[in-house]
Design a protein around this nucleic acid. Sequence first.
DNA 1: AATTGCCAATGGCCTGACCTTTAAACGATA
DNA 2: TATCGTTTAAAGGTCAGGCCATTGGCAATT
Lengths: 261, 261
Amino acid sequence: MPIQAIRTQRLYRQIADQLRQLIERGEFPPGTLLPPERELAQALGVSRASVREALIALEVVGQVEVRVGHGVVVLEPKSSSVLPVMSQAARQQPWALDPEFSDETALDFEEEIPPYALLQARRHVEPEAAALAAEHVTPEALESIREAFTRNVEDNHRVQKRGGGGRPHSHAGDRLFHMRIAEASGNPAYALLIKHLLGHQYGVMFRRLQDLYMTTDMSDRSQEDHQRILDALIAKDANAARAAMADHLDYVLETFFAEAE
Amino acid sequence: MPIQAIRTQRLYRQIADQLRQLIERGEFPPGTLLPPERELAQALGVSRASVREALIALEVVGQVEVRVGHGVVVLEPKSSSVLPVMSQAARQQPWALDPEFSDETALDFEEEIPPYALLQARRHVEPEAAALAAEHVTPEALESIREAFTRNVEDNHRVQKRGGGGRPHSHAGDRLFHMRIAEASGNPAYALLIKHLLGHQYGVMFRRLQDLYMTTDMSDRSQEDHQRILDALIAKDANAARAAMADHLDYVLETFFAEAE
DNA sequence: AATTGCCAATGGCCTGACCTTTAAACGATA
DNA sequence: TATCGTTTAAAGGTCAGGCCATTGGCAATT
């Protein structure tokens, strides 16, 4: 016989479980009120504090709603699909999504980072990643970079053929190019960093940069820059790769800020 | 003038929300312990019962784990919990919604990055962030950095008093120190990068580094380094800050790799 | 009929106490 | 020296009782 792990469940869990069973059994149909906290405490032979903890647990998962001065209302068992609690939680905890309550939270991952800050960071990180890549790049990695380069060239071609009125230019090739260089550095941390930096340039503020990309010779110049970087990687010349990447980003920075003022 | 609806949040929600923010800000990284209930209650100016209710709410949502007689452990932000999985995913990889960028560049973020790679990247990024911070730091930011420094000193003290057999050393103070400097740089991108780098040093491989921290004079030396960095920031000396941060990380790298071979 | 005032019921929160569990620290012992 | 109980401080678990704030129905008032 397998050993039965005896676990002294914390009281609030036991109470919450029991209440949940009673609710599901129909003892307290949706819409009705649970007995008052004081009664529950006495009936269960526990303190009111424990009952309150149990009720809060049930409230957090959206099974009941506590109304001050009124009572504890049993809620409808909402869509018990894969993400039942999601909608429930969102409804029951407006503060979870309410911007008013996320003030100063610095939800650092959603925060929109200004283009200049992003580019400044990339300007600092990517040349080093490129230098590392020149030293550590494998033939396969080089091939994947070359492929990204080609794709970027195609992207640029497409945009020029269509003129300014085409669909928004896809920067997938460009992103892929930078991303794969970072991966080729052999240091996954650099790849992580650059991936995050690239991932944050989807904010509205980047529309300007993207517009610039099409209304200037930026794409041509970028392509030349990319070619230089690629050559340096092929030559496994760390210094050249670092310099080429730095020049490239300097150019982007300059272009952006020349127009931005 | 429209009437402003007064919304008296129940106390446990305010507390839970605040704790959640602190956790997300990095004050209490995953794996560390929250302050004892009694301390929290006193610090927040509320009763212990309310703190407990908040902790239960956080526990139900899978953000913390309460261990009897031990403390409240901060958990990894797992999407397996009751938390809204979608928004969680989107929060961590904003570009996940862009189909053009989702191809092949799968560098999953759960991947464990080797300590050396992590430290190398930090070695490259943090000195620059420190230099920027020296130029842009505000009095409030400086105060928050000083507070993190103090906390780190306390952490070290605690570990020394207990000797080698003490409980695992909390690096919360150290993390905070580095993170707040990044935030003080005025460039949110640097803060983002460093936050992610720090967030990855919880893998098993870092146990060695953490052990070293206690079995050598690393904590003393680190503390001196931190002091130098702090002084440079106070003096608003960018070059000194950059150098101090670089020296600090060089020391950590050296120590780790002298022992690691 | 509408408004106002009252009040019992109910949840919200606090204080302070005591118990149980955990794990570090300590000794005793082999 | 290493191992194994014992001790003990710290942390969570629970309880009792009290006071406050809100709600909602009912009665008194206009």
